[in-house]
Computed example of a mutant assay.
Amino acid sequence: MPELRLLDPDGYVVPEGRITITPTTETKARADLRDLARDHADRWAFARYDHRNYRIVTVPEGPR
């Protein structure tokens, strides 16, 4: 199954920022990751992180 990953402004995967998705769970997963980006940016505000600079990437399912 494909996976969504939340990347911080430096390109690292945010802890708890990986969610395996199905077509029916993708919308909710993206909303959850956007919320996580806000929380993570708030915790790292001293480093000038801004939730608008986070990216959600889709990682396709690899070969079995």
Rank of each mutant, 00 (worst) to 15 (best):
M1I: 05
M1D: 07
M1G: 12
P2A: 12
P2D: 11
P2N: 12
P2K: 06
L4G: 01
L4M: 06
R5I: 13
R5M: 15
L6S: 00
L6N: 02
D8K: 05
D8S: 14
G11F: 04
G11I: 05
V13Q: 06
P15A: 11
P15D: 10
E16T: 11
E16N: 14
G17R: 03
T20I: 10
T22L: 09
T22F: 05
T22V: 07
P23Q: 03
T24A: 13
T25L: 06
T27Q: 14
T27K: 14
T27Y: 08
T27M: 09
K28C: 02
A29Q: 01
A31T: 11
A31Q: 14
A31L: 13
D32Q: 12
D32E: 11
L33Q: 06
L33F: 12
R34D: 10
D35M: 05
D35V: 00
L36Y: 07
L36M: 10
L36W: 07
A37V: 02
R38E: 14
R38Q: 14
D39M: 12
H40E: 10
H40G: 00
A41Y: 01
D42Y: 14
D42A: 15
R43L: 15
R43T: 07
R43P: 02
W44A: 08
A45V: 11
F46S: 13
F46E: 14
F46A: 14
F46N: 10
A47F: 08
A47L: 15
R48F: 14
Y49F: 14
D50E: 12
H51L: 07
H51C: 12
N53H: 12
Y54C: 04
Y54W: 09
I56W: 00
I56P: 00
V57F: 02
T58D: 02
V59P: 00
V59H: 08
V59D: 10
P60Y: 05
P60F: 04
P60V: 02
E61Q: 13
E61V: 08
E61P: 00
G62I: 10
G62K: 13
P63T: 07
P63S: 08
P63D: 06
P63H: 04
